[in-house]
Simulated scan of single mutants.
Amino acid sequence: MKKQWKLSTAYMALLSATCLTAVPLAAQAADYPNKPITFVVASAAGGILDTIGRIVARGMEKMGQPVVVQNVPGGGSSLGTAAVARAPADGYTIGMVATSHAINPSVYASLPYDTLRDFVTISHTVNLTNVLIVNPSVPAANVQEFIAMAKREPGKFPCGSAGNGQSNHLSLEMFNTETGIKLNHVPYRGSAPALNDVLGGVLTCMFVDVLSAKQHIAAGKVKALAVSSSERVAELPNVPTFAQAGMKEFDANSWLAVVVRTGTPQDVIDRLGKSVAQTMKEPEVRQRLLSMGIEPVGALPSESQRFIEKEVARYSSAVKSAGVKID
């Protein structure tokens, strides 16, 4: 009996210690947030990632604490993402990432984090509609005519991108694979100089976001063949979707998402996810985004995590097919 009492006492001591450790975590989640939140945007100020990040950050401030946006560009968004991976798993450092978040594991020989193991996706926040544009001198009037033209003269037509392994590069490679054509990839340091060379006739074509291209399309400086969204873009009503152009399975959308470190309390993850979802439902936010060719999504955490896992697998296939690797 005496021995049993000693064992029970030891067990109770261990249980008490465990409870004492758990209480601060539970209390922290219950009163979250009780201090400012750092929102790491993995890009320079002024771009789409930064614009959407600041909209989301303003929405999160409705939880009662300031949200401080910190721009950390570089490394195909991996530098900013790494900063989130190094932060405590308490929900006070979160990150805004782009499609490159799902591409980088396949493109880079090594990363300072594991994309699927080290992060939980709070929200698949928005989809960015991309458009396939060509120089006005190209005689094709639609996607099918462009494909036929490229098949007649394989390897003749240069197509630009923001750089090796960027989402518009992989959209090009997936377009090549699906159609059986060969458009020559020409990497640039960003989408803007590539777009300038499509305007100038140095490049035949490129995939680019609608926001960057719409003024040039309206002015007749480039021709838009198809958009990647499920429905036509209001500001480009005469441009069909890829599905309407006969490519029902082709997906050239980009996206933005909000992530946090794995190990963050589930209550905190859920609260952050609901905050983003509510922001994406606000009429003024929706109207502003749709006018920019951006589709508000605001998916909740469990659905968003499944989406990222599928995107990592999808881009892994595209990267393998394109033979892209960055040391």
Results as ranks from 00 to 15, higher is better:
6 K>T: 14
10 A>K: 04
12 M>Q: 07
14 L>R: 03
15 L>H: 03
17 A>L: 15
19 C>D: 13
25 L>V: 15
27 A>Y: 11
29 A>E: 11
30 A>G: 14
32 Y>N: 07
33 P>S: 09
48 I>Y: 09
50 D>M: 03
54 R>E: 15
58 R>F: 12
59 G>K: 04
59 G>Q: 09
60 M>D: 13
70 Q>P: 05
70 Q>E: 14
73 P>G: 04
81 T>I: 15
81 T>G: 07
82 A>D: 11
82 A>E: 11
87 A>I: 04
90 D>R: 00
92 Y>C: 02
94 I>V: 10
95 G>K: 01
96 M>W: 03
97 V>F: 01
99 T>C: 09
104 N>G: 06
105 P>A: 06
105 P>S: 03
107 V>D: 01
108 Y>C: 07
108 Y>A: 10
113 Y>M: 08
114 D>Q: 08
116 L>H: 01
122 I>C: 08
124 H>K: 14
135 N>R: 01
136 P>W: 00
137 S>T: 12
137 S>W: 01
138 V>H: 05
138 V>L: 10
138 V>C: 15
142 N>K: 03
143 V>N: 01
143 V>T: 06
144 Q>G: 08
145 E>I: 07
147 I>S: 00
149 M>D: 10
153 E>K: 09
156 K>A: 13
158 P>W: 03
158 P>R: 05
161 S>E: 00
164 N>P: 07
167 S>C: 11
168 N>H: 08
169 H>S: 10
170 L>P: 04
170 L>S: 02
171 S>F: 13
172 L>M: 13
178 E>S: 14
179 T>D: 10
182 K>P: 10
186 V>R: 05
188 Y>H: 07
196 N>V: 06
196 N>Q: 12
197 D>L: 04
198 V>D: 01
200 G>C: 11
204 T>F: 03
206 M>D: 00
216 H>A: 12
218 A>W: 00
219 A>Y: 00
222 V>E: 00
236 L>K: 04
239 V>T: 11
240 P>H: 05
242 F>M: 04
247 M>C: 02
250 F>Y: 13
251 D>S: 12
252 A>H: 04
253 N>C: 11
255 W>C: 09
258 V>F: 02
260 V>W: 02
262 T>L: 07
263 G>W: 04
270 D>W: 01
274 K>A: 14
275 S>R: 03
275 S>M: 08
275 S>D: 08
277 A>M: 14
280 M>G: 04
284 E>H: 12
285 V>M: 09
285 V>A: 05
285 V>L: 10
286 R>E: 13
288 R>Y: 13
289 L>S: 02
290 L>N: 11
295 E>M: 11
296 P>C: 06
302 S>N: 12
303 E>A: 10
307 F>E: 09
309 E>K: 07
309 E>G: 05
314 R>I: 09
315 Y>M: 03
320 K>P: 09
327 D>K: 11
